[in-house]
Simulated assay, not measured.
Amino acid sequence: MNKPRALKKGDRVAIIAPAGPTDKEQLTQGIRVLEERGLDVVLGRHVFDVEEDIDILDQNRLFDLHEAFRNPSIRGIFCANGGFGTARIAPKIDYAMIKGNPKIFWGYSDITYLLNAIQNFSNLVTFHGPMVASDLNDEERTTETESSILSLFTGEPLTYDSRNSPLNTITYGTGEGRLIGGNLTLLTNGLGTPYQVNTNGAILLIEEVQEPAFKVNLMLTHLQQAGLFDTVKGVVIGNFQAEPDEHKKIKKVLQDFFTRVSFPVVENFHIGHCQPNYGVPLGVNAKLTTSPPRLEVDSGVR
């Protein structure tokens, strides 16, 4: 898997919105965070577009994505926010061009579809991390969320343990492999397509937001019956945001589903729709241990 070059102060980065239009005030606040890190921020032409014609909408989103990768002055690409519809543009992406222009691509939620598609066809490490408008705005962001961007500058490996959040082990053991995954709904939507996540010999990360327990169970069962858990080396359970009563039901679903598997499973990582929201590279080697619970992840940049 090809690692993009690490960022340095003065680098130009682009912000695009391939999953939906962004809030201007929140985006401005998030841009300030990137600028304080010494980055020169440029906006994709269509980050604020609200277009009723779906074909035009997809063309515009694809234009910004391609322009950001094609422009040699841009060293990193950050998504503004989530939304829906990235699966529609996946078949139209010029993956050969992206492979020839490797750079940081950062986002999560609906962006999960693109994170996996780019890995599958461009052999490029991608990044599951907090987005500029939805996570780095003044109201939402925490110091930990903001600091996770620093890993793009240092090139140092990441260690996530109970100092970051109180981790809980569901199934004990040790697993090592590529860290892959993202939003559970998008992973399920990708099944049977060329953009399906490759779980063979991997550590699988899953997270979700505002889905009921019965649907979480349905999606996990779908992944299981599609064979995605047959050869995984471990599962990292990120945030499953839901109302308190529903969250209790989801925790039971996760416990019941993963209790008797043969690989290690650890939950309560603050990765996903939460604050803090820790960014992690996908496609690099990772090690999941349970005594004590800890996730070690290689750097995503070179």
Rank of each mutant, 00 (worst) to 15 (best):
169 T>K: 03
92 K>F: 14
199 T>G: 07
81 N>A: 04
21 P>I: 04
129 G>L: 12
113 Y>A: 06
200 N>M: 11
298 D>Y: 00
129 G>F: 12
302 R>M: 11
191 L>W: 09
80 A>G: 05
40 D>E: 13
200 N>Q: 15
256 D>E: 13
98 I>P: 00
37 R>D: 15
121 F>S: 05
58 D>S: 06
241 Q>C: 04
249 K>D: 09
79 C>G: 04
58 D>G: 01
272 G>F: 06
247 H>N: 07
69 F>V: 12
79 C>P: 07
283 G>Y: 01
171 T>S: 06
202 A>F: 14
104 I>S: 10
275 Q>T: 09
287 K>F: 05
300 G>D: 10
140 E>G: 02
137 N>R: 02
212 P>W: 07
77 I>F: 13
57 L>M: 10
185 T>I: 15
151 S>H: 14
152 L>D: 05
269 F>G: 00
239 N>C: 13
52 E>P: 10
222 H>A: 14
77 I>G: 08
220 L>G: 13
187 L>D: 03
21 P>V: 09
27 L>Q: 00
52 E>A: 12
99 K>M: 14
46 H>L: 08
10 G>T: 00
250 I>E: 03
123 N>W: 03
253 V>H: 14
242 A>L: 02
302 R>W: 07
23 D>K: 05
126 T>A: 13
47 V>C: 01
113 Y>K: 06
69 F>G: 03
186 L>Y: 15
289 T>P: 01
134 S>F: 12
37 R>K: 15
129 G>A: 14
247 H>G: 02
85 G>D: 11
99 K>H: 12
290 T>C: 01
221 T>M: 09
290 T>D: 02
59 Q>K: 15
205 L>G: 02
175 G>I: 09
263 F>R: 11
19 A>M: 03
11 D>A: 11
119 Q>T: 10
184 L>F: 08
40 D>R: 12
182 G>A: 11
43 L>D: 06
164 N>D: 13
170 I>S: 00
259 T>Q: 09
151 S>T: 15
241 Q>H: 09
249 K>W: 04
10 G>M: 07
186 L>P: 00
115 L>C: 07
88 R>Y: 04
287 K>R: 15
178 R>T: 11
280 V>D: 07
19 A>C: 09
68 A>G: 08
49 D>G: 04
296 E>Q: 10
105 F>N: 06
280 V>T: 05
62 L>A: 02
182 G>H: 00
214 F>Q: 14
18 P>K: 06
85 G>F: 07
48 F>K: 06
168 N>P: 00
207 E>N: 15
197 V>P: 10
